[in-house]
Design a protein around this nucleic acid. Structure first.
Lengths: 356, 356
DNA sequence: CTGTTAGCGCATTCAC
DNA sequence: GTGAATGCGCTAACAG
């Protein structure tokens, strides 16, 4: 709408040259106090909007390009971290006018050793910035310290780690996830019935931070309302379909009053697949995220709803914000807020939920 | 990621100049068959991505700017069409690097006469393109014919009108809205209870197309499942708080078995406000869209859920797509798909749901 | 420290 | 019909 302020105009208003304005805007130093004050004065009055795209064009001249390192868990196609990746890639495509060299470092989300190994490589790799999937707290923190030392900016996807200084954090509120799950389960199951919460059991690894937060919030919901609902917590081997199936069948037999199953991870389809048809009627199953497996179950009617964290959006925002930071030199305004959470039923499941 | 193809490179590969490539890309004619074939050959092999932003920069030189006409219903702050407007404005801000002159033409969504009047002005106003809120079918169609004659492109927000040729249509599937509403109501109310559907009663105007579609889909949901649920349809005066209140109290007294109220328009808060506290317990109220009134009720706990059509997103996408069309000369790939629909509970209500 | 300038992708104008 | 040249906002190299 209203004409944008350009650096040329700023220069004119401040009585300096565009070079000086550029130096001020990017904190490149080598500016006299007087010139700095003059430019600042203009910036304080008028609102300047930086044009990331023309900036990118100018960058091309030098042949320099941004070097992005992305370290996230590896993932089957259509599973959680692959969706994150789709969002990352989509952003990289959308900002294709900016010269970006991008390198992925995948680690095994079930192995802290693998994470440590991979992060070690990341720590010493020269780059402009890093995007991290926060899975292992200690390992992530250590890497961040190394990056801080080197002055390399980084952003988090899917979580945050205390004691670090990320330029942005892109995640949803797990507390909201847990309470929302509780609300839906509470509403969709009959009053006297029991509800099961299924947690992942992993070999040699303890329950992930997100699962724990969701479980806590889930229980908090009922506690806060003074609900008499009986909640049955149970672990299942999320990685092994056959084993999971056997355990879930047995669990349902032992708990005949269960009318709802809340799966606090994105492998809900494993549970849905395991429930025998004879038990399907009157059983509500809810899970997380529109992964391929969950999507299939929703369409088939063997799962009832999903809480969508929009992993793709998280990835997209991470790249977008990081580019803004790298080119503009200051964090994006919206890099700190929690991202919205959706609820997906069969009725509103979109074949391809597009990232942003 | 991979280097973008530029028009300079295309020119080189085709053995012509950038001017010729530009003429081909924009169908400006004045190109020999031979040159056209050469450029086409390159475009067929390589994939060219047009850079809308550098294009916008170049446009500035000429001082020419895009003239957008936006004609939508007027609206109180925070109500449905104001949310659409927020999305429109957000897009205009985001694409602030493009010189756009934008003019709003508001009409009264309850008066076809007002619409006709306003559209008459729009029809003769010179402009680059038009964005239309599709409220009155006949009036919209007539305007579109006039625009077609003049060769002015237009897009729809919040609906579509048969027999027109919009460059894009940005809306959600009302069929999905209705079925989703039914699904939620069905799940959240006890089995034997009755469900009320509340429709707007307007003076001198018949029920809007969207409301009718939602109602039909709502009923279809139950019919398809052979459900024995009793659905009570009722009209209420959405525009008058006092009258609405009286009628709803009386409705609830006459229908004591009603446990769910589905309001098929965005004025659900009027219903929620009218329900006496004594009847609140065990009553589920669902409506449409995160308007200020609905938002207040959700937070207060007097409404239970909203189906969010993201009017802001619709507006945003409309502008984005139109700009793409105007600058590139071809419709956006994603200008035809239906937009996603969210569900909002107290737990996942975001204070300010940002557009895109 | 500061101003000038070339050039990025693109649209347009104007000679040829 | 066509291509060379100009300038949009911006960066960076360079000359003062």
């Amino acid at each position: 709408m209203e004409q944008q302020l350009t650096i040329k105009q700023i220069a004119q208003l401040a009585g300096v040259s565009v070079g000086t304005v550029d130096r001020v805007l990017h904190n490149r130093g080598k500016v006299s106090d007087k010139a700095l004050a003059a430019v600042q004065a203009v910036l304080d009055t008028q609102s300047y909007r930086y044009n990331i795209h023309t900036s990118a064009v100018a960058f091309k001249k030098t042949g320099k390009s941004l070097h992005l390192l992305i370290s996230i868990p590896s993932s089957e196609k259509g599973e959680y971290w692959d969706l994150v990746r789709q969002g990352l890639d989509k952003a990289l495509r959308e900002y294709g006018d900016i010269s970006i060299v991008c390198e992925y470092f995948f680690f095994d989300q079930f192995s802290s050793l693998s994470c440590r190994d991979v992060f070690h490589k990341v720590a010493s790799q020269p780059c402009s910035a890093v995007i991290l999937g926060t899975t292992f707290i200690a390992e992530t923190r250590e890497l961040c310290w190394r990056l801080d030392e080197r002055g390399v900016p980084y952003v988090f996807v899917d979580g945050s780690v205390p004691g670090t200084n990320p330029v942005g954090r892109f995640m949803v509120d797990q507390n909201v996830c847990g309470r929302l799950l509780a609300r839906l389960m509470d509403g969709f199951t009959p009053d006297g019935s029991e509800i099961a919460v299924l947690l992942p059991r992993r070999i040699g690894t303890q329950i992930s931070n997100n699962s724990a937060l969701r479980l806590q919030a889930f229980k908090d919901y009922f506690a806060a309302r003074g609900s008499k609902r009986i909640i049955k917590e149970s672990f299942f081997p999320a990685a092994d379909a056959a084993e999971a199936s056997a355990e879930i069948v047995s669990f349902l037999e032992k708990n005949p009053k269960v009318r709802g199953i809340a799966v606090v991870i994105s492998a809900g389809y494993r549970v849905a697949d395991a429930v025998p048809d004879s038990r399907r009627e009157g059983l509500v199953i809810g899970g997380f995220d529109v992964t391929e497996g969950n999507s299939r179950c929703i369409l088939a009617g063997t799962m009832d709803f999903l809480i969508n964290q929009h992993p793709d959006r998280q990835g997209f925002c991470a790249v977008e914000s990081l580019l803004h930071f790298l080119l503009y030199g200051a964090p994006d305004k919206s890099s700190e807020g929690r991202l919205p959470i959706d609820i997906v039923f069969k009725e509103n499941l979109m074949p391809r939920q597009a990232a942003e």
